[in-house]
Design a protein around this nucleic acid. Structure first.
Lengths: 185, 185
DNA sequence: CAGAAGTTTCAGAAATTACTGAAAGTTTAT
DNA sequence: ATAAACTTTCAGTAATTTCTGAAACTTCTG
């Protein structure tokens, strides 16, 4: 498993970015390596290529599996476990979005719901609650929307993205188009 | 600047989430405090309320200003500087998206462009380059799209979000609606 | 210009997070 | 049942990130 210079650059970069994407350097490197390698690759090969301990590799792979970004791949006749990406690039990107939503938005939504249940103790709290409510509604919209987008599937999503500024014009016509929908206030 | 229990819970939570949102605990707490407090608040009051050093407070505020999430507010007659949110909740959310895009996507796009310029040295590299190209295109779409959404402005964005699954139906009709746009393959 | 009121910087300490490697665990083959 | 081939766990260490607080800086006031 010798990495070519190009692959090395890419792997190193994804390592650096890893922490910004919600996982750590090693996990980012492992992911890049698995994605860029057309053949399935074993844990030992990963450890060797990246110069990291076998234990760290194991933990990284576990994390990537919990994100559903890589999966195991049994090679007939081989005792070792091999790893491959859990889907195409689109799928992987979707998974990252979804996992991050779970980690970054859901816990906050849940707390906000709780905080909004209590009656405000005074003026100050009433004001704060109002702000928290705005935040809650915003997060709810984002969540609903992102699920909606995922349900569209890659093709339609792509259509929508490529549509670009056409979206604006389309929205202006929407009431004529979809008379069943009530307008938003 | 005594925090009520409700505000305390919210501030602590935003601190915990802070690191997942791209800044650290203290920065998250400071942001929450500024947003939830209707009055402008001074650096010293923030340090006291959160029990953090004055120096840390200063750095946190600097970071929040670099994210364009809070701004200074001069109170006439007061020597101190006060701080307030840089806009309404929608604006703040947009700023977070945009900043994160800059930090999480732009550097990768730039590297990918470079890596795609070199001719592949062999079979392996050609394959890797193909994958990198897919990633590049995806990130490009996401970037373009998110800029598009921001240009729509809050009202239309809200309309779009509330539209929910109507988007799917709308897309099916789009060709009739916007005949100038070519279909996507 | 001295000094009071405030802010920022940054070296070192504290806290957190990631990594190693040896030991324990698992699976398959004989 | 034993051994070989492999994986996982986890205590301790290393690396990184965050925080403090004292010193330096800035600005305003008399």
């Amino acid at each position: 498993m010798k990495m070519t210079p190009l692959i090395t650059s890419a792997v190193m970069h994804f390592g650096e970015m890893g922490s910004r994407w919600g996982f750590n350097r090693t996990v980012g490197q492992i992911l890049a390596l698995i994605v860029l390698n057309e053949e399935p690759i074993s844990a030992q090969e990963i450890a060797d290529a990246l110069n990291i301990s076998r234990g760290n590799t194991s933990m990284g792979l576990k994390e990537l599996q919990s994100w559903r970004l890589v999966k195991q791949h049994l090679v007939p006749g081989e005792r070792k476990e091999f790893f491959i990406p859990a889907g195409d690039i689109w799928t992987l990107a979707n998974r990252v979005f979804e996992e991050r939503r779970k980690r970054e938005i859901d816990p906050t939504m849940s707390l906000l719901r709780d905080l909004l249940l209590d009656a405000p103790a005074n003026e100050k709290e009433a004001n704060a609650q109002h702000k928290l409510n705005e935040i809650h509604d915003l997060l709810e919209s984002i969540t609903a929307w992102s699920q909606e987008l995922q349900n569209l599937g890659p093709e339609k999503l792509n259509t929508l993205m490529k549509l670009g500024s056409g979206v604006g014009r389309m929205l202006e016509l929407k009431d004529k188009l979809l008379p069943g929908k009530n307008s938003v206030n």
